[in-house]
Design a protein around this nucleic acid. Sequence first.
RNA 1: GCGCCUGUAGCUCAGUAGGAUAGAGCAAUUGCCUUCUAAGCAAUGGGUCAGGAGUUCGAAUCUCUUCAGGCGCGCCA
Length: 554
Amino acid sequence: MSNIKQKIREQIAHMITDAVAREGFEAVAFSVETPRELSHGDFSTNAAMLIAKSAKMPPRTVAERLLSGMKTEGTYVEKVEVAGAGFINFRLGIGWLYEVLPLVEQKGARYGEVSAGGGKKVMVEFISANPTGPMHMGNARGGALGDSMASVLDFAGFNVTREFYLNDAGNQIEKFGCSLEARYLQQCGEDVPFSDEWYQGEDITERAKEFIAEVGDSYVSKGSDERRQALIAFGLEKNVNLMKKTLEAYGIRYDVWFRESDLYKSGEVDEVLALLKDSGHTYEKEGAVWFRASDDGEKDEVLVRANGVPTYFAADIAYHRNKFLKRGFDKVIDIWGADHHGHVARMKTAMDAVGISPDRLEVVLMQLVRLMRGGEVARMSKRSGKAISLGDLLDEIGVDAARFFFNMRNAGSHFDFDLDLAVEQTSNNPVFYVQYAHARICSIIRLLAEDNVRVKFVSEIDPTLLLEDAELSLLRKIGELPDEITAAAQTLEPARMTRYAIELANEFHSFYNACRVNVEDEPLKATRLKLIDSARQVLANVLGILGVSAPEKM
RNA sequence: GCGCCUGUAGCUCAGUAGGAUAGAGCAAUUGCCUUCUAAGCAAUGGGUCAGGAGUUCGAAUCUCUUCAGGCGCGCCA
């Protein structure tokens, strides 16, 4: 059992179901939840209110009857009572809290893990930035979100794959090639025009210069096609390596870098086009091949342009088919910028058309980010003077602040990123607040170790010595992690982990002010030391999920 | 015009399959270091949950509607 609270919840649900049957009430889908206020007990159910109508009785009467024969012997429940409009509140004895410590010890770095995922294969595809330039703030948010979501799912018992889809084919690569070629020729002294439609960034010129450093002007005299291909290959490799480096600094490592071009090479794009055509999902108009989505109330979309080149959409269908059919993922999560939301419904319609149930694909849309500095929108990097890239952000505020801040808000909310706050070394800054809790614990452990007092095994201490409110609430908070993981995985909201981390840090800091660890009473000292060491472990686990370091000293 | 997202304390946001007196953090005011890191803790004040109507035992949450902000509706990705 990896989740004590879940076990108790099931126990209570069982007691209620039995009581409902015994009293001859109609079975209802009641909930067993944790009331906001502790004074309302540890768990509470709305069963009586739901039954009231069909039983034609006041809710409180129903509650009394349910309660009348309820046996709590042999359960964690100490007290049951009717309250409010007809809630039945369950108060637990404190015994269950003491089971938290052995569980943390046993699971260690995997404490928090639950089996909800049942080992299902799930892919999280995130960032998938165009390799034609540096990564921007949308990529930064998507990276923090996707990577932590993947970690959450891993803890929730899924078999997780992190994937980056590399758009190394199609239109934007052509543009990339044209841009590089023009810059290359310009750098070699040729007078060639530069189209407004190409990539204007400095990085293109940089790539051209680097190319010259390797091959000189030898490509000036060659054919445009050959020249462009060489530049694309060169620029792509440079950019991809740069991305990998930046992402590594950002704490993200992918399992798979999937190349769009491979879908063309393997014939999967043609394959899926044929499939759609044979099943009557396409039609031709003005020389182009269209996907018929209008049956589902969506707009039709071009699959193959009049010039014979398939669109991104066509490749994307092939890509998703590959994820499900060729590689057997049970579930795929795509993280996209909110500006792509128009694509979601069509993608799902297309999934349906190639015979894949659309609800196996989950698209998480992420609102865009505004960087704020000095109360105003910051567009330019302090260092480079250019648009702020992920690399610039990491230089300015560091990985920890970036990873933590991007996961403070749910994907769906617009996010103003306060750059000033992110580097502040005060309690205003939640990253420091949480890290400080971890460092503070490490500091106590370190000092006690100097006196030869070590953290003991749970079998060597007596958890029931923990009786103070501060101690019990800390234990309670530690005990909540499996539930939090479950919820975060279910809602695909790793931001829950950030909030949990802050709450846990808060519980520890309160404990710290209320109770000393280094007391005369040796058994109590050992037990409290075990308690804070468990808190340390849990903080480290959560920070790990968030991709934030857990410093031992600050 | 049609579609999607958002609107909760001065600010930034939570609010768990409708649940009890709507919560945190910051900012403001006030206490707490002869004691393991005061990068901390405790207390106080602060709300027409954008407005309106409906559904019901019960709505910030569901439905309808109005308003405000963001985004999308390419042979771009």
